[in-house]
């Protein structure tokens, strides 16, 4: 199933976020953990699945392939998709203010 601009899975979102800087498999997992401040520990299977799917969808590309180590980076489309998703998440947060206000009363 190719990406059609709808809500992203958490895994997709964080991989795109981490690939703002080109990176390869194992290190990518660690930078995802870093970016999410330890909240998200992504398994290698999930990462591999997300990478190959997003590569097919053109959200990321292979930047360097020296034999076994493959370095990926985000594409223009990927970055755009990430920003669209970020805006969507932001409005989610905005809309959720009701909750905070409810707490204040």
């Amino acid at each position: 199933m190719s990406y059609n601009g709808g809500p992203m899975t958490e895994a997709m979102y964080y991989v795109l976020l981490a690939l703002i800087r080109p990176n390869h498999g194992y290190q990518l997992m660690q930078s995802i953990t870093e970016v999410s401040r330890g909240r998200l520990k992504m398994g290698p299977g999930t990462l591999y699945g997300v990478l190959s799917r997003m590569q097919k969808d053109g959200l990321i590309v292979l930047a360097k392939d020296d034999g076994r180590r493959k370095t990926y980076e985000i594409t223009k489309e990927g970055e755009q998709a990430l920003r669209v998703e970020y805006e969507r998440l932001k409005s989610l947060i905005n809309d959720s203010r009701i909750l905070e206000e409810a707490n204040d009363e």
Binding site: M1, A11, G43, P44, G45, T46, G49, V50, R53
Partner: peptide, 16 residues
């Protein structure tokens, strides 16, 4: 070792 699949919905794609 860390679990291979941490996201079941992502794992579902592998069966597609």
């Amino acid at each position: 070792a860390p679990e291979i699949h941490t996201d079941p919905a992502e794992q579902a794609y592998t069966l597609q």
